[in-house]
Each structure stands twice: as C-alpha cells, then as structure tokens.
C-alpha cells in the first residue's frame, strides 16, 4: 500500500498526487514512469513521473481523468492509499544519462502539450539543478487548463500558448516554435516533445523541417510495463520496439505515429463503457 501524502486539483480534470513510494523515489530519473493501481481490483495505469524527492522518499504524479480507471482513482484523497505503485519503469531521458558537459553545449527546447507538461517539468527541473536553463513551450486549449505554470517558471524559460488566445501566445505549439525560430531568432538543436500523440506527430514534422533533433515520449497501451506482454509495441525506424523497456522516449523522425494512434484506439468501446460506469456509480 502506498500513501497519498498530498492531492491537489490542477484544473477541472487533472490532479496531482504526492505519493510515499520509497523504492521508486530511491532510483527514478526524469523520463521514467510508474504503473499505479488505485485499488485491489483496479487496472494497471502507466503514468510518467512528474517529480521526485529522494530524501523524503516521495514521487509526484499528475493524472488526467480521461477514462474509468483514472476517474475512479481521482476519488482517492490525501491520507488514503493506492494499492500499487511500481517503478521506475522505462529508460531515463538521454539528457540525464549523457555526458553533462555535452548536454550543456546543447540548445534545448521542450514542447509540452496538456498533461505532457508534467513529465516535461521533471526533465526541465533536473537540467536546472545541473546549471542548464532550457526554453519550454507549454500549449493548452485555453487558459483554464494550463498546469504547473509557477513550477515551470521557476526552472525554465517558459512560453505559454493557448489555442484560443485566452492566455500567453495564440495558436498551437507548432506555431509558437516556428515563430521563435523563424521570427524571433531562437536557435535549437535538441527538442523534447511530450503531449498528445497527434501533437507530437505534427511538432516532429515541423522540427524535421527546422532541422532540430527531436525526442518524443510515447504513451501506448500497457499491461505489465516490464516487457513481458508486448502490448506497448510501436514501430520505430521500421522495427518493432516495446515502449516500456526500449523507451518510452524515441527519436521522433523514426516513429510511426499513425500506427501508434491507431493502436491507442484498440479498446475504445470498452473504455467508453468503463467511463460511463464510473460516472454513473
């Protein structure tokens, strides 16, 4: 059992939890994820780590209530327990394992969409702690759903853009990045993009055009998260990879996004039914 130490709603359908998870906090690094089950009969939900505190043995996760499982989990409050938190799973992002002197030479931009802001924060914070301040573009549909703004400002050079122009710049993250590079004289040679699959697809088409090496974090369907089931397979550079053990981060130019998006829809009817059941309960 894993105690929920703090819980906070970040917007109407996104909440943050700080969890007592000593084993994960002991060894996790930015880019890795955990699998969580809220109750003994819950499904296994993969979530990228948003923050961790080795001393206090805690990790922070940010969850969007998009399905029955996450909606059910959102009913848990601080002081209660999650049945399972296992990890860290997957490989850390290259930025934290590569030679730090080489990383310092890079001109890095992060692009986050929606919930992707949480795992991006983990990486930006790590870089900041290692003397690197990166540019960060955070995109949201509208002002009300921007998350982790203050936290991100404290560790990175933040650009917010909203689709409807209600906050920050107007337009999608692609417009923002293109403007920064083509109109505002910014230069980047490394981009980490985390967000909805469709956003990562179009952003990486843009960065390919702009010549910026881009890494994306994939979030396919998973069951065990340790390589045993193969549900999370995606095609990268023409080869089948397991996102849970080979990723979750991959070189964007090599990822077959259309296949990945199609595979995400594998259980749509069952998911819709599950969401309805939780809402009605």
């Amino acid at each position: 059992m894993f105690k929920i130490l703090e819980k906070e709603w970040l917007n109407v359908n996104t909440f943050k939890m700080i969890l007592d998870a000593p084993m994960v906090a002991h060894s996790c690094l930015p880019g890795q994820f955990v699998i969580v089950r809220d109750t003994e009969d819950g499904e296994r939900i993969p979530l990228t780590i948003c923050d961790y505190d080795r001393e206090n043995k805690t990790i922070t996760i940010v969850v969007q209530t998009i399905g029955g499982g996450t909606l059910q989990m959102s009913k848990k409050e601080a002081g209660e327990y999650l049945a399972d938190v296992v990890g860290p799973l997957g490989r850390p992002t290259d930025l934290v394992t590569d030679d730090i002197e080489e990383v310092k030479k890079k001109k890095i931009v992060f692009v986050a969409g929606g919930l992707g802001t949480a795992p991006v924060y983990c990486q930006v914070k790590w870089l900041h702690e290692h003397g690197i301040t990166a540019d960060v573009i955070v995109g949201a549909k509208t002002k009300d759903i921007v998350i982790l703004e203050e936290e991100m400002k404290a560790v990175g050079n933040l650009y917010i853009t909203t689709d409807d122009g209600s906050y920050g710049r107007t337009g999608m993250v692609t417009t923002c990045l293109e403007d920064l590079v083509t109109k505002e004289g910014k230069e980047y040679d490394h981009c980490v993009c985390i967000g909805p699959m469709i956003m990562m697809k179009f952003l990486s088409q843009l960065t390919a055009k702009l010549g910026i090496h881009t890494i994306v974090s994939m979030n396919p369907i998973m069951v065990d998260g340790t390589g045993m089931c193969g549900a999370c397979r995606i095609t990268v550079g023409g080869e089948t990879k397991f996102a849970c053990v080979d990723g979750p981060e991959f070189d964007a130019t090599e990822v077959d996004f259309n296949e990945a998006m199609r595979r995400l829809g594998m259980y749509k009817p069952a998911e819709a039914e599950a969401l309805k059941a939780v809402k009605e309960a």
């Binding site: 065990d224 089931c229 549900a231 995606i234 595979r263 829809g265 594998m266």
Partner: peptide, 13 residues
C-alpha cells in the same frame, strides 16, 4: 502490429 494482434502473454495476462 494491426489492431487485434496480441502476444499470448498479453492475452493471458
């Protein structure tokens, strides 16, 4: 990798 192809491990798990 079509939708509807599973490893036995996934299906059984």
């Amino acid at each position: 990798n079509l939708n509807g192809v599973f490893s036995a491990n996934e299906y059984l798990t």
